[in-house]
């Protein structure tokens, strides 16, 4: 049923979709955009995703922030006005285990009223501990829902287990995580079946966990970043995907990161997006001091400061929201 509805929508004229998606978004969320920033704690990784800059087989400088560095990164980021932070690591049970994450959260929570994580998938009890510590949100992307392609792209590490990753959002929801972001990495294969499978994944999660705020991310590979040449998803296709997502899921959050260039972000956000990152760095460290020359997980296209993104939103008559959720 959802698949039929999705393919009917995908077949519609793009302008019609955009008009409808914008209407629904304004009705549901008003003229507001929540802002957040990523904070990379570490880049150690045990996986070898063929498309990723942190892949275990790449010879990059591996780093992990210690307690004092985390503190100074948080201080610098919080001083920009950001209140909602997404903590990221590579996926390494050895270098960034639960204990490391718990102690990081202890520090981070002094600075930010809302903390989300994007780290290696874990068991329910680990998520429970993180919720206790003060984590509200989780991002985990299936990358692709095509099992064969998934197997080819993930030759090593625990990430090879497709099913365990697929069930991660459900484990997090069971553990009491309130905001869960799922997504597919666009450009790995044909986007249509992946996006449709993502929608089905979301639908089943919504049914099982009605109290969770789910959101969708559509990270797109804009250039060759690893050894693999991606199937490029065009701007028009991404607009189509965002609009159809909004129409199918009127209440779901949609995130838009700084992977996307400024011009594209400025024009597309009003069509369905609810949350944007701004003033981001994707190196380990980088807020407290410049990390030029250090290795990033992916390259940022929109390099504007938080203040610039905020000014852009205000000029388009949108309210940039910093506090839309606080841990209580």
């Amino acid at each position: 049923m959802l698949k039929v509805r999705a393919s009917e929508l995908f077949a519609l004229d793009l302008e019609t979709l955009a008009q409808e998606a914008q209407r629904i978004t304004r009705q549901q969320f008003g003229r507001t955009i929540a802002l957040y920033a990523p904070l990379y704690l570490a880049n150690y990784c045990e996986n070898q995703c063929l498309y990723c800059g942190f892949s275990a087989n790449l010879r990059i400088q591996r780093e992990k922030l210690g307690p004092e560095q985390i503190d100074s990164e948080c201080a610098a980021l919080a001083a920009t006005g950001i209140q909602n932070v997404l903590l990221l690591t590579g996926e390494s049970h050895r270098h960034t285990p639960l204990s490391y994450l718990l102690s990081a959260v202890e520090t981070v929570k002094k600075y930010f009223p809302s903390i989300s994580i994007e780290v290696q998938p874990m068991d329910t009890q680990d998520y429970r501990a993180l919720v206790e510590a003060g984590v509200d949100g989780l991002a985990v992307y299936q990358e692709t829902y095509d099992k064969e392609l998934y197997a080819r792209l993930h030759p090593a590490g625990r990430k090879r287990n497709f099913q365990y990753r697929l069930e991660t959002p459900a484990r997090a929801a069971e553990a009491g995580i309130r905001q869960i972001s799922i997504g597919a990495l666009l450009g790995l294969g044909d986007w249509r079946p992946d996006v449709e499978a993502l929608f089905e994944h979301l639908q089943s999660l919504e049914k099982e966990y009605p109290g969770v705020d789910f959101s969708l991310s559509f990270p797109r590979m804009l250039q060759v970043e690893g050894a693999m040449a991606p199937c490029i998803v065009s701007d028009a296709d991404l607009v189509r995907i965002i609009c159809v997502a909004r129409i199918l899921f009127p209440r779901v959050g949609i995130n838009l990161s700084t992977r996307e260039p400024a011009y594209f972000r400025d024009h597309v956000f009003s069509l369905g997006v609810t949350k944007m990152s701004a003033g981001s760095t994707t190196t380990v460290g980088g807020y407290a001091e410049s990390m030029e020359g250090h290795d990033a997980q992916f390259s940022i296209s929109d390099e504007r400061s938080l203040a610039e993104v905020k000014a852009m939103l205000s000029s388009k008559e949108y309210d940039p929201v910093f506090t839309d959720w606080r841990r209580m």
């Binding site: 006005g81 209140q83 009223p113 940039p320 929201v321 910093f322 506090t323 839309d324 959720w325 606080r326 209580m328």
Partner: peptide, 12 residues
């Protein structure tokens, strides 16, 4: 919403 109140009293 209490969750939207900026208890740190920033500009917004």
């Amino acid at each position: 919403a209490l969750r939207r109140i900026d208890l740190e009293k920033n500009e917004d």
